[in-house]
């Protein structure tokens, strides 16, 4: 079954200065085990979209189904939120407790999980994000990447079916970003956790199975990373980047080197170059 099934989703923000259309008919399906990256400029609507995944926002038009459950049905609200875990941008503003393990326990506590099982889940989740050595630490003394891993553990402890990272790497330094990325990649590849990554870092999007490009509240491009990043002119017009290796290979092709399309990483580029001779 599809974990996420979004059809013709609309969202309008109403402020004092009139209406802003944030989403104008988005269709998106995420299946079990997928790793989907959603990229777009700041203000493109990608974060608004993410907030529809777990009913923080409700559709102004169209519908969002989470494992078949309609997010507009109030009675299903907590089931939806248990199934879709969300890691937010600001590492500090999503950690509730003063001790790491207590924070990880926060979700299961809210769900009414029995104490013995909470303890098991906290242990397991901290191990999954490699933070078991920090279980009694105070969160404010951790690095940004560590805080986000604690946040991920807090989500895992709720046993969700989908993890959404809503620009969760935007405020981190390169080391923090790679910590979070390798954590989520491992969860996806080794444990089959379905994940959606909202980002504007192209080198992160490259690692997904599928990349969805959002602009002005609409999906403008969708496909494998190789397919999407071969459209570098379109992406640049949208104010987005292309991974450096992809761009370099396009430049080289333009200079007459018979390189294939769909190169994404430095290693791929070098392999292809060596194959030319």
């Amino acid at each position: 079954m599809d974990i996420l099934d979004i059809a013709d989703l609309h969202h309008i923000y109403r402020g004092h200065e009139g209406e802003t259309i944030a989403l104008a008919g988005v269709d998106l399906v995420v299946s079990e085990g997928e790793f989907v990256a959603v990229i777009g400029r700041n203000g493109s609507g990608k974060s608004t979209l993410a907030k529809h995944f777990n009913a923080i926002l409700l559709p102004g038009g169209g519908r969002v189904l989470v494992a078949g459950l309609d997010t507009r049905e109030e009675a299903l609200l907590w089931s939806v939120r248990q199934m879709v875990g969300m890691v937010f941008q600001h590492p500090d503003n999503q950690i509730v407790a003063t001790v790491v393990e207590e924070d990880v326990a926060f979700g299961p506590e809210n769900l009414g999980v029995p104490t013995a099982e909470i303890i098991e889940r906290v242990d397991a989740s901290l191990r999954q994000v490699n933070m078991e050595d920090y279980r009694t630490h105070a969160p404010h003394l951790l690095s940004g990447g560590q805080k986000q891993r604690v946040a991920i553990a807090g989500i895992l402890a709720m046993r969700p079916r989908l993890i959404v990272l809503d620009e969760a790497t935007a405020m981190l330094d390169p080391i923090g970003r790679s910590e979070v990325m390798s954590t989520i990649l491992r969860l996806n590849r080794e444990e089959g956790m379905t994940a959606v990554l909202i980002t504007h870092h192209m080198d992160e999007a490259v690692k997904a199975n599928r990349v969805v490009v959002i602009d002005q509240g609409q999906v403008v491009l969708s496909g494998t990373p190789a397919e999407v990043f071969s459209q570098y002119k379109l992406l640049e017009a949208l104010g987005l980047d292309v991974p450096v290796a992809a761009k370099l290979s396009i430049l080289l092709a333009e200079s007459g080197l018979p390189l294939p399309a769909h190169i994404l990483t430095a290693e791929q580029l070098v392999d292809e170059l060596c194959r030319l001779n």
Binding site: V244, A245, K247, L248, L251, L252, S255, A266, E267, L269, V270, L273, C274
Partner: peptide, 29 residues
């Protein structure tokens, strides 16, 4: 290092006659 430099480094290791460092994509190209 910048990715342009990284590509050159990998190529050099495979015996290509390229400089060690490129600061921009154009230079690498």
């Amino acid at each position: 290092v910048p990715q342009a430099t990284e590509v050159l480094g990998l190529l050099k290791a495979k015996g290509w006659a390229v400089p060690e460092v490129a600061l921009t994509l154009d230079e690498a190209r």
